[in-house]
Design a protein around this nucleic acid. Structure first.
Length: 589
RNA sequence: CGGGGAGUGGCUCAGCCUGGUAGAGCACCUGGUUCGGGACCAGGGGGUCGGAGGUUCAAAUCCUCUCUCCCCGACCA
């Protein structure tokens, strides 16, 4: 039996000053974790117990759909060169050299290793489908670790990879993961939602994120209370109200208007007596390209036109142009527009015709909200002047139209029209149709039924183990501490004798703890010679969902069962304690 | 990487401005009294004041450099 008095559970009265979010404060205070360095944490006894329970659930559910592997974290450079990610990953990849000077890295994920195994061993379509997974540490040199366990540099990840003969088969593997993830998060007692996610620049087709709403989260998700619509910001759209276009001024051709000193959208709109909705917002951006050594190689201009009152979503833009962007510097603006900022517009510049094949010309992206609009007002690329009568597609040719707009709360749901809400959330899982990204770059081929070489199609699927713990703590805490769902709590029940020097109380507590344990429950006996207040405070702090308080009422054959989450207190006959917990913990065997 | 903040015993912090040989509360150890919501009394142990250099008779305190950590942003398969 686990006795508190002999365990190492260093609880703290006060949280470390640098812990801000609830989960960080409480996990440290409760003695689950200690920090080793920025974004690197040690798990102590309670933390490890909880962690192991989470991993056991993940393992059980994953074993139903796949096979567990155990892969190295230390990878040779060549492997990452083969997939192209050695250069792509930049500084987030931990790199090191071995004694011979050979480049190595610490795995951020295991696509390369998994694919290399498939590559060497897989020959026939008959070996497909395969789902391989592991639960192992991952390393990412994050620019800014934060919020305790929420964003760390070493973390435990369940990552799995599917290999299928074709897209239809991938759909099956994908669905298996989707369902397994739901079972995992249900069993972990999390209130989560599944959102459509953008598959980004990796060429994937479909992607879902499993999110838990919490103010501590780093991601924003858009969802609808009226229907089941949910998406992350990169993917979210909304129904826009129709905006009446201005009628053409004079002959309808672009018309120069004098707007001295009017630089902002609001100023110009007010000056000309129109709504910002009839204005074009011109954003001047640059995409820098880097060589393998991380030196800037070249830059190209990317200009984005938005409706005057809309905001750009950078993730959408990055996905569209498949690269990161930054605002142009003043000199770059002058060079392209021949005009100071504040009067920028799309006219008089030769834009690329094709987004992919841009031939080094500047790219003009126009947000979909401007598609079909007429007689807009935009900058004239001339100091103190704007243009009226601008119609996209007629007066200037965009390189492409794209959805680049950031959805804001309260806009209409694209499915049902009800107002959308935006919440911050933590991403606990992500499933992702990879497509042929790695099969192609690494040369994975099998023979199909006809003896023809084909590329297997892949999927990858991740779960952040510490994020499950973090999300659970964020989901259930108050000023005194937190409570975990019994499935992932380090112990299900803490038995707390109010005074261990009282023999009747002590013996009864021992007896109760023993009987609960024999009945298969995870019990800790707080046998410390401490005052009751100390035990209660600690019990409230450390995340155990149920407490049995053994006190004076033992003489009447009664103890109290305290529900941590609701603070409900129930008197229970000692003789019925096992049955009581079998019911509470849903174990009626 | 840009902006902001902080490093003094295990935790929370004071002392720094105005240099003079390091303190409080909690935690810990011993003894005693207590015992249903972080007890009380008495005694005790523990600190290169993040590091290096400098100024000075003298540096936690002033100056320079540097490291680390936290927060906001950028970034985030």
């Amino acid at each position: 039996m686990q006795r508190w008095s002999r365990l190492f559970i260093p609880t703290l009265r006060e949280a470390p000053a640098d812990a801000e979010v609830a989960s960080h404060r409480f996990l440290v205070r409760a003695g689950y974790i200690r920090q080793l360095a920025a974004g690197i944490y040690s798990y102590l006894f309670l933390g490890t117990r909880s962690f192991n329970k989470i991993m056991a659930i993940v393992r059980e559910e994953m074993d139903r759909i796949g096979q567990e592997f155990y892969l190295p974290a230390l990878h040779p450079r060549e492997l990452w060169e083969a997939s192209g990610r050695w250069a792509l990953m930049g500084e987030n990849l931990f790199r090191l050299k071995d004694r011979k000077g050979a480049d190595m890295c610490l795995g951020m994920t295991e696509e390369e290793v998994m694919t290399s195994i498939a590559l060497k061993e897989m020959r026939s379509y008959k070996q497909l489908p395969q789902i391989w997974y592991q639960i192992a540490p991952k390393f990412r040199d994050e620019p800014r670790p934060r919020s305790g366990l929420l964003r760390v540099r070493q973390f435990m990840m369940k990552d799995s990879y599917s290999f299928d003969i074709d897209a239809a088969a991938l759909d099956v593997s994908y669905k298996k993961h989707y369902d397994a993830y739901c079972r995992i998060f249900d069993r972990c007692g999390l209130k989560y939602m599944v959102v459509e996610a953008d598959s980004g620049a990796m060429g994937g087709k479909e992607s879902h994120e499993f999110m838990v709403r919490t103010p501590a989260g780093e991601d924003q998700i858009v969802s609808c209370d009226g229907c089941d619509y949910a998406a992350n910001m990169e993917k979210a759209t909304s129904k826009l109200e129709e905006v009446p276009d201005l009628s053409a001024f004079e002959d309808g051709k672009p018309l120069l208007v004098h707007t001295p000193g009017q630089k902002t959208i609001e100023d110009v709109a007010k000056f000309l007596g129109v709504s910002p909705k009839n204005k074009i917002k011109t954003l001047a951006l640059m995409a820098d390209e880097f060589d393998a050594a991380g030196k800037k190689k070249s830059s190209r201009a990317i200009v984005v036109l938005m409706r005057g009152d809309h905001q750009l979503n950078e993730a959408k833009l990055n996905g569209t142009v498949a690269t990161a962007t930054r605002p142009m510097e003043e000199a770059e603006i002058e060079a392209l527009f021949n005009s100071p900022a504040g009067y920028l517009g799309p006219m008089g510049i030769e834009w690329a015709r094709d987004l992919k094949d841009h031939k080094g010309k500047p790219v003009l992206l126009v947000d979909k909200a401007l598609e079909g609009r007429t007689n807009l007002i935009g900058g004239a690329n001339k100091k103190d002047y704007h243009l009226k009568n601008l119609t996209p597609g007629k007066d200037f040719q965009p390189t492409a139209y794209a959805d680049l707009r950031a959805v804001t709360a309260g806009e209409a749901c694209p499915n049902c029209g009800k107002p959308l809400r935006i919440d911050t959330a933590v991403e606990i899982g992500h499933i992702f149709k990879l497509g042929y990204r790695y099969s192609e770059s690494m040369g994975l081929r099998v023979l199909d039924k006809n003896g023809k070489e084909v590329m297997p199609i892949m999927g990858c699927y991740g779960i952040g183990i510490e994020r499950i713990l973090t999300a659970a703590v964020e989901q259930g805490n108050d000023e005194n501490g937190f409570w975990l769902p019994s499935s992932i709590a380090p112990f299900e029940v803490v038995v707390a004798p109010v005074n261990v020097k009282d023999e009747a109380v002590r013996n009864s507590a021992e007896d109760i703890a023993k009987r609960l344990e024999t009945a298969g429950m995870d019990v800790i006996l707080d046998d410390r010679d401490e005052r009751p207040g100390v035990k209660f405070k600690d019990a409230d702090l450390v995340g155990i969902p149920f407490r049995v308080t053994v006190g004076k009422k033992v003489t009447e054959g009664t103890v109290e069962v305290v529900f941590r989450s609701t603070r409900e207190v129930r008197d229970v006959r000692i003789s019925a304690i096992v049955e009581q917990f079998q019911e509470l913990l849903g174990r009626t065997e």
